[in-house]
């Protein structure tokens, strides 16, 4: 069977070629290959991309996390408030990441110890964490203005490439190393592929899953920190719906909802595709108010196409 990743990369590549050619032919009507647009893409992809890396790892173990959108928001508040209280910025970062890991571990423990579907466990966390955000945000300014060094590191540019994208690629490489090349990564796949068998060969599936939950939460917090550093402000309603978008990115990238399959490259390409679709639609002047209609339709088509090609190649 041909791996879905081959198709999705092919699909992505073809789309890129079409866009680039169209953009070169009509440079004034379709500004795809403009410095501005490329800069935008490189800044926009990482937020959802990084969240998807974590969600993807968790999906490989066969679980979901609906609380990542809330954790993303909480991370923004956490770093802004801690920094505002006078903590050095790097301590605020460490504390924020630690809070996220604690939430992830809690999600994981609740899921495995009480043997309940992670959908439910993390939906609870989604609501609770968002409630905490509401409570924290009350009457407070939530702007975050760290020093130049810090913001430059997270949102500047190196050799013309946007820093967020470099972070994204760096984290993707790390995730790839973990998932594809490490012992723990192998356990992620085995637990997600068939948990009973994994247990039978002596893998501590609970431990493996709790780690994956922690990573999902951690990734969401990193994305939250990255995005508040970029926009300078956090609002309580932000991040709603990101959890489902991240799952969609993973599915587009060839991960299975049932777990045990998928690649980090797929997640990266999925995230790029997701943003490309929105970007191209807006560049083509699709009605902005109904944007989600088009995005939704194109995503479903992409997944259908991917599934169909995979099946066909399998015969």
């Amino acid at each position: 069977m041909r791996q879905p990743i081959v198709n999705i990369c092919l699909f992505f590549f073809v789309l890129q070629v079409i866009c680039i050619v169209a953009s070169l032919l009509y440079p004034n009507d379709f500004r795809y290959v403009s410095e501005t647009n490329i800069g935008l893409l490189l800044r926009a992809i990482p937020v959802l991309g990084i969240i998807s890396l974590g969600v993807g790892v968790l999906m490989i173990t066969g679980e979901y996390d609906l609380s990542v959108g809330s954790v993303y928001t909480l991370a923004g508040y956490s770093i802004a408030l801690l920094f505002g209280m006078g903590l050095p910025v790097w301590l605020a970062v460490i504390a924020t990441l630690a809070i996220a890991i604690a939430i992830g571990v809690t999600n994981g423990l609740i899921t495995v110890k009480f043997a309940i579907p992670s959908f439910i466990a993390t939906m609870g966390a989604m609501l609770v964490v968002r409630g905490v955000v509401r409570w924290l945000s009350e009457g407070r300014t939530v702007s975050f203005k760290p020093d130049e060094t810090f913001s430059g590191l997270l949102t500047g540019a190196f050799y013309g490439i946007e820093a967020p994208f470099i972070w994204f690629i760096g984290l993707a490489l790390l995730t790839g190393l973990l998932v594809h090349k490490s012992k723990l990564g192998n356990h992620f796949y085995l637990v997600g592929g068939h948990e009973k068998t994994a247990i039978a060969v002596g893998i501590n599936s609970h431990r493996v899953k709790v780690i994956a939950f922690a990573l999902a939460s951690l990734a969401a917090a990193i994305a939250g920190i990255l995005s508040i550093t970029r926009v300078g402000t956090a609002t309580p309603a932000q991040g709603i719906g990101l959890e489902l978008k991240a799952i969609a990115v993973c599915v587009i990238g060839g991960l299975f909802l049932s777990g045990g399959r998928g690649t980090v490259l797929g997640i990266v390409v999925g995230a790029c595709l997701m943003y490309m679709v929105e970007d191209v639609l807006l560049l083509l002047r699709a009605p902005g108010f109904y944007l989600d209609v088009f995005v939704g339709a194109i995503l479903v088509v992409a997944v259908i196409l991917n599934t169909w090609l995979t099946r066909k190649a399998g015969k």
């Binding site: 500004r31 403009s34 501005t36 647009n37 935008l40 800044r43 926009a44 937020v47 995005s227 970029r230 926009v231 402000t233 956090a234 609002t235 309603a237 932000q238 991040g239 709603i240 719906g241 990101l242 943003y275 929105e278 970007d279 807006l282 560049l283 083509l284 002047r285 009605p287 902005g288 108010f289 109904y290 944007l291 989600d292």
Partner: peptide
């Protein structure tokens, strides 16, 4: 004039509005 669905997430709203402006400079 036209409305744009930008989402309540600041980072996403920022991107969508920028993309719109690139598409319709």
């Amino acid at each position: 004039s036209e409305r744009l669905d930008a989402s309540p997430t600041m980072a996403t709203a920022l991107t969508r509005i920028s993309q719109y402006l690139v598409g319709r400079p």
